[in-house]
């Protein structure tokens, strides 16, 4: 019953997103959509997925979308042509997809191949083979470690893409100038700054908890990285980009983004050198279960490093590009 309501809400929000022209409202609705999907996943007992959806879908992607809107402007351009061809393509694809689902086993049916073959293996053997209580983490980081490696590489590539498209070379800013800007902003943002300053340590602590508690409860590198990045972005938003650039060195962050992927990959290579298959962590230690623990810890650390760094890179480069646009505008006004 709850899921019917939630799905109905999701459909309503999806229609509203398509109909709206105000991009700020659209990104807010996307955040609500993410939060509702997270609740939907909770009702289906998929807490790990729900946690990821809440932190990524409702949290940081809304934030990055807002940062993008400050670059592009707030309202959608009206379309100049009737998108008949696009509608046709979408309809055909939709029909094909629905036709494709007809061959699939019914949702939740007990004799679906996934419930006969892999899932029972994971559920029955995870405790002996991997030895951690959270089966989701053992599937994600160990059984399906190669898939997760792919995901991390995708995130890394996204960060590199943003760097390649948007990064600007900037001169080192004058420290006294930064301080004077900072002081002038101080009275304006006093309450926000005090509250945020008190909260940021706890957000960072929570991120570390999520990072290292992923073996035992919902959590893991993806969520932890996003929460960590959210704390840094919060700081940057309230204390100004120039102060944040002084605190968070951009080249160090880019280095960390690469180190995360490299750490993940090298764990796999170490397993390969020890004569097991790629990303088989039981090769890391004499005791296979201890090896699995170590491998999962290292791999999740790599994921967390890359995700946090890439999110920070994306946000900082969006904001840096906006600074460039603003200074160009000011110069333009000065010419006239």
């Amino acid at each position: 019953m709850t899921s019917v309501f939630l799905l109905a809400f999701l459909v309503v929000i999806a229609v509203a997103i398509v109909r709206m022209r105000d991009l700020l409202a659209v990104s807010m609705l996307l955040g609500i959509y993410g939060l509702l999907s997270a609740s939907f996943f909770v009702t289906m007992d998929a807490v790990d997925v729900a946690f990821t959806e809440a932190s990524v879908g409702a949290g940081i992607s809304t934030l990055l979308m807002l940062a993008a809107i400050t670059l592009t402007g707030r309202s959608e351009h009206p379309t100049r042509h009737k998108p008949v061809l696009a509608l046709f393509v979408v309809l055909i694809t939709g029909c094909l997809l629905i036709y494709g689902t007809l061959d699939m086993p019914y949702f939740g049916s007990a004799d679906a191949p996934i419930h006969l073959h892999v899932a029972p293996h994971y559920i029955n053997n995870s405790m002996q083979e991997i030895g951690i209580p959270n089966i989701v983490t053992s599937v994600l980081a160990s059984y399906r470690g190669f898939d997760t490696f792919g995901e991390v590489v995708v995130i890394f590539t996204a960060g590199m893409g943003v760097l390649a498209l948007l990064s600007v070379v900037r001169r080192a800013e004058n420290i006294t100038k930064i301080d004077s800007i900072n002081d002038s902003m101080h009275a304006e943002y006093l309450i926000l700054r005090i509250v945020v300053k008190a909260l940021i340590p706890f957000i960072l602590l929570y991120a570390l908890y999520v990072q290292f508690h992923g073996d035992f409860g919902p959590g893991g590198g993806f969520q932890a990285g996003v929460i960590f990045a959210a704390a840094i972005i919060l700081y940057a938003m309230l204390f100004g980009m120039s102060t944040a650039r002084r605190v968070i060195n951009q080249s160090v962050i880019q280095f960390f983004a690469a180190i995360g992927v490299l750490l993940y990959g090298s764990v796999g290579v170490v397993a390969l050198i020890n004569g097991k298959s790629f990303l088989d962590y039981s090769a890391l230690s004499a005791d296979p279960v201890a090896g699995q623990h170590l491998g999962i810890l290292l791999v999740e650390l790599g994921v967390g490093l890359t995700v946090a760094s890439v999110m920070v890179i994306i946000f900082f480069n969006f904001e840096g590009r906006r600074d460039v646009l603003q200074s160009q505008e000011n110069n333009h006004k000065g010419d006239n």
Binding site: I191, L192, V195, V196, A198, L199
Partner: peptide, 10 residues
């Protein structure tokens, strides 16, 4: 109790 009043204020 910390975050909501701050958000409303902002």
């Amino acid at each position: 109790l910390f975050i909501s009043p701050t958000a409303s204020h902002a």
